[in-house]
Simulated scan of single mutants.
Amino acid sequence: MKGYLFLENGEKFEGELTASSNQEQFEGEVVFYTGMTGYQEVLTDPSYKNQIVVFTYPLIGNYGINEQDFESKKPHVAGVIVLECKDATNHYEAKYSLKEYLDKWNVPLLSHVDTRSVVKQIRNHGTMQGYLAQTETKGCSTIEKFPVSEVSTKTQVSYGRGNKHVVLLDFGCKKSIIESLVERDCTVTVVPYHTTYEKIKELKPDGIVLSNGPGDPKQLNPYLPTIKKTIEKYPTLAICLGHQLVALSFGADTKKLTFGHRGANQPVFDTLKNKVFITSQNHSYVVDELSLKKTSLTARFKNVNDQSIEGVAHRTLPIVSVQFHPEAHPGPSDSSWVFDDFIESLLNVRREKQYA
């Protein structure tokens, strides 16, 4: 059936709408993803909660949906927009077509859309709210929601049986982050985002990981004192939203980019190793570089394209944060060494305690 994307600035884009739900409209923040592949990981990444994703590559769905590459148990996107969606699948692992998978979870799909024009609107005017519907309605809410509570674990869960114990604060964690730690001989205890310092201390971790997640990091301001107290006591790796929370907890500031970084080809410069590598990213907010001057943090990683902060390090404590995704799902594995460096920091602290 014929359907439309309505943007909050008044622009309208026509396409073919597939939606199994009788819902009148589907609202979300309209963003775009530039990767040629990786749509399955994008759909199930909790960081995309409440977002309508425009895929810029013209053909999406040709290798279907498999049972291995999910980042969570269900899709979190509010809607999907493509130029062309492939019904048939051409991969031996495929279990569903993209349309079948979206239909199963009542996620609307708007196809045959001039995605270039949609992306130009976002690039020129910034990320904005929008909705998918058959006819124009009164519009949608422009108030940003607090989605972390919807995607964080509700109970404590453990993975792996390694000899290094990592507590992961879940703000909307991707499965592949946990897998990357388990592969490095870690026991990973995943806890809700609001877990207290006292509870974390009882778990006796060797280190802390702050996960990725959706939304404005400042919506988590009430939890910053707990986060700071925790990461000052243990070696810490923070990823994406977790990176922004590290910066905020030490007194830095964050701001929203015009249209964010979402893709699998973002070049990042490591000021310590003097190297550039390609990363996978998904974020709207960044750390304000000027605000770091009044903190104990230094900028370690920078985006080659726009010079935005891609990660920080503490001047004296074993705390490193990255805006990109070192687990590389989807995307290149150039930055997987970030996990290795984190594991080495755990071992260094363990050695120090042993010989103290």
Score class of each variant (00 low, 15 high):
80 V>G: 04
146 F>Q: 10
307 Q>L: 02
54 V>F: 08
279 T>I: 11
27 E>T: 11
29 E>M: 14
266 Q>H: 13
5 L>S: 10
329 H>F: 14
49 K>G: 03
74 K>P: 01
205 P>N: 08
24 E>T: 13
48 Y>E: 06
314 H>M: 07
246 V>E: 02
295 T>V: 01
144 E>F: 04
83 L>N: 15
278 I>R: 03
352 E>R: 13
150 E>V: 07
236 T>Y: 03
338 V>F: 03
190 V>E: 05
276 V>W: 01
167 V>R: 07
230 T>G: 05
190 V>W: 01
349 V>W: 02
191 V>P: 01
137 T>P: 07
75 P>K: 06
329 H>S: 11
191 V>Y: 02
243 H>M: 06
112 H>E: 14
355 Y>C: 10
115 T>R: 01
291 S>V: 08
160 G>Q: 00
122 I>M: 03
79 G>M: 06
262 R>T: 11
120 K>N: 12
168 L>M: 13
196 T>C: 06
3 G>H: 06
234 Y>T: 08
155 T>K: 15
154 K>F: 01
22 N>F: 13
220 L>F: 02
209 V>A: 08
37 T>W: 15
319 I>H: 04
243 H>A: 09
274 N>W: 02
179 E>V: 09
174 K>V: 04
293 K>W: 04
157 V>E: 11
291 S>E: 07
137 T>V: 09
30 V>R: 02
256 K>F: 12
276 V>I: 11
239 I>K: 06
321 S>N: 10
103 D>F: 07
162 G>R: 13
313 A>E: 13
104 K>M: 10
196 T>H: 04
146 F>G: 03
17 L>N: 12
143 I>M: 06
91 H>C: 02
349 V>D: 06
110 L>Y: 14
354 Q>P: 01
70 F>R: 14
104 K>G: 02
337 W>N: 09
337 W>M: 08
158 S>V: 11
52 I>H: 00
176 S>Y: 02
207 G>N: 08
300 R>E: 05
48 Y>V: 00
9 N>R: 08
157 V>Q: 11
233 K>W: 07
265 N>G: 13
149 S>M: 10
206 D>R: 06
329 H>R: 13
233 K>L: 09
74 K>V: 12
154 K>E: 10
161 R>W: 02
261 H>Y: 14
196 T>Q: 12
86 K>D: 12
69 D>N: 15
123 R>E: 15
